[in-house]
């Protein structure tokens, strides 16, 4: 589904990704772990087309098409979803209004009929309820005044509404309390664990992986994948840290 080959990328003038190769098949969940500043969020931004993140070498294909050729909104319509490490506050724009517009823009891009207000609200209510979020909150301006955990939960509600084929989730577990972690973990499984979908789960901790069991675990260090393995690799990292691994 997603094939990243020898990806190099700069942020500003600084090389951050330095030959990253990774491939995800449909039905798989991959976890990416790695030290602070290694380039994990950069990978997520490059895959979703954030301006200022310049690919200098390498290729990314998504379901056979060149992902890097697409604008951010076209990547979304193609089925890519980025769960932000730091979800952005947008004053004055209500969650529901923005999500309905976003979903319908994606549907239009795929030649599907738009959802009516009522149809959309039904979907939104289902997802919000499943993730334990108040409908009132969904009517408030996007992320404004949300707590850290509420922002992450909101990302998952959005993912549920948009229902993407590929989710890149950047530290979705950070900032969540113990109960929220379970709810969000269940949400990821419910929305994304399907034979036709894939997840790239960026995390620092095993605790999320207790709920969302990865098929593969990779270490991203200094801009490339330095090690890959099964779920046991995460446990090993938790025990020994990255230093041990590098030695």
């Amino acid at each position: 589904m997603l094939q990243i080959t020898n990806l190099h990328a700069n942020v500003g003038d600084k090389p951050i990704l330095k030959g990253l190769t990774l491939s995800l098949n449909a039905g798989e969940i991959h976890a990416i772990m790695g030290p602070n500043g290694a380039g994990k969020s950069t990978l997520g931004y490059v895959l979703s087309g954030r301006p200022g993140y310049e690919v200098t070498e390498g290729e990314v294909t998504f379901n056979g098409q060149n992902l890097l050729d697409l604008e951010p909104h076209e990547r979304a319509a193609a089925g890519c979803f980025l769960g932000f490490q730091y979800p952005v506050e947008i004053p004055g724009v209500s969650n529901v209004q923005f999500l309905r517009e976003a979903l319908n823009a994606q549907r239009k891009n795929r030649n599907e009929a738009p959802l009516s207000g009522a149809e959309f609200l039904k979907v939104a209510r289902e997802q919000a309820t499943a993730l334990g979020m108040d409908m009132d909150m969904l009517k408030r301006p996007v992320n404004v005044g949300f707590s850290g955990g509420e922002k992450k939960r909101n990302e998952m509600v959005q993912m549920g509404i948009i229902n993407p084929a590929l989710a890149i989730l950047d530290e979705t577990d950070s900032g969540l309390d113990i109960d929220a972690l379970r709810i969000v973990g269940d949400g990821i499984n419910r929305i994304m664990r399907r034979p036709d979908k894939a997840v790239l789960l960026i995390t620092h901790y095993q605790r999320l992986l207790d709920y969302v069991k990865p098929d593969f675990v990779h270490v991203l260090a200094d801009g490339r994948i330095t090690r890959s393995g099964g779920p046991e690799l995460a446990l090993e990292l938790e025990r020994d840290g990255y230093k041990e691994l590098a030695a």
Binding site: S48, P51, P72, H73, V88, F98
Partner: peptide
């Protein structure tokens, strides 16, 4: 306009 806000909206599917 906040460029990060614009990117966030586009990443969810809105055209620029």
């Amino acid at each position: 306009l906040d460029p990060m806000g614009l990117f966030y909206l586009q990443a969810r599917g809105l055209s620029p």
